[in-house]
Structure formats: C-alpha cells, structure tokens
Amino acid sequence: MDPKTHVHTHINGEPVEFLSEAYRSLLEILRDELMLTGTKEGCTTGDCGACSVTLDGRLVCSCLVLAVEAEGRRVGTVEGIARGETLHPVQQKLLEHAALQCGVCTPGIVVAATSLLERNPDPTEREVRYWLAGNLCRCTGYDKIIRAVLDAASELRGASPNVLE
C-alpha cells in the first residue's frame, strides 16, 4: 500500500476530507472516491476540458491537479453551480439553445463558462470562443454553445437577451 495524505478541503462550499496517495489527481479523487462524477474524464492530459473545476475560484483542469494540492483550498465542481432547484443562467441557456447533444462536455462547459462570466460579464463572441477553446465538444460544432453563453451573459447583466441576431 502506498502512503496516503489526509487532505482537508471545501468542495462546493462544504468541508470535505479525504485520503489520497501523492500521485492521484484531483479528478480521480472527485470521481472515484467522493462519487462526484459530474466532472468528466476525456483525456487526463489537460487537452479536453471535460474535467474543468475551479480551485480557489480559478478555472483548472482537475486531471492536472494533484489531489493533495487541494489541501486548504476551495474546489468548485459542476454539482455546485445550480442553487437548489434553480439552474444557473448558463445551464438554463444551454438547455434552451439545445447546446448539448451527448452532453459529456457539458459539465466542463458549464464550469468554464460560469467562470468566464464571473470575470467578464460582457464578453464578445471571440472572447467566448477563446475562453472555451480548451473545452472540446465533438458533437455541436460550438455554434449553439457560444450563443447560449452570450445569451446567459446578457441575462446576467439584465440586458435584453439575443446578443447575436
């Protein structure tokens, strides 16, 4: 048995403790130990963004973060985005725009897009495209995802929706 470290962290606002070997990724612990399987694994090499989470508010690929690095830090996952039964506008707009087909990239897109809108409430189409360039989607061609994020941004700003068109 490899030695394990006792890690104390907050996940989606709640205190969570776990044990992890030094070599395990945060993604593995979230999915396989804590059963937070909303965060997806598409590659484990930082190339697909399906594993996107926030660490102290910063967007990261959880496959590239060691679980022990979460010690004393705040982790945000897709499971923490909605408030009770109320979806975040990004989630709602993704649904309204039919911006998911298989949906496996969606948790990563939700986390990445909410993170974008927190720091840039009024992004251009180009800014959304570049921010989400690390989130691969093989199904949609991105069109509806981009529209949904722009629409969510304008709703969050209280502006009239429909930035394009």
Partner: peptide
C-alpha cells in the same frame, strides 16, 4: 427543452465511466 437536459447540465447524468 429535452427531458434529460437538467441531469446533463448539472452533472447528474451517468455516463459509461460514472
């Protein structure tokens, strides 16, 4: 809106590895 949509935007939907 698709019936399985909310599960898919909240991370609840179970895929193969979940």
């Amino acid at each position: 809106i698709r019936h399985d949509g909310i599960d898919k935007v909240t991370g609840r939907a179970n895929y193969g590895a979940d």
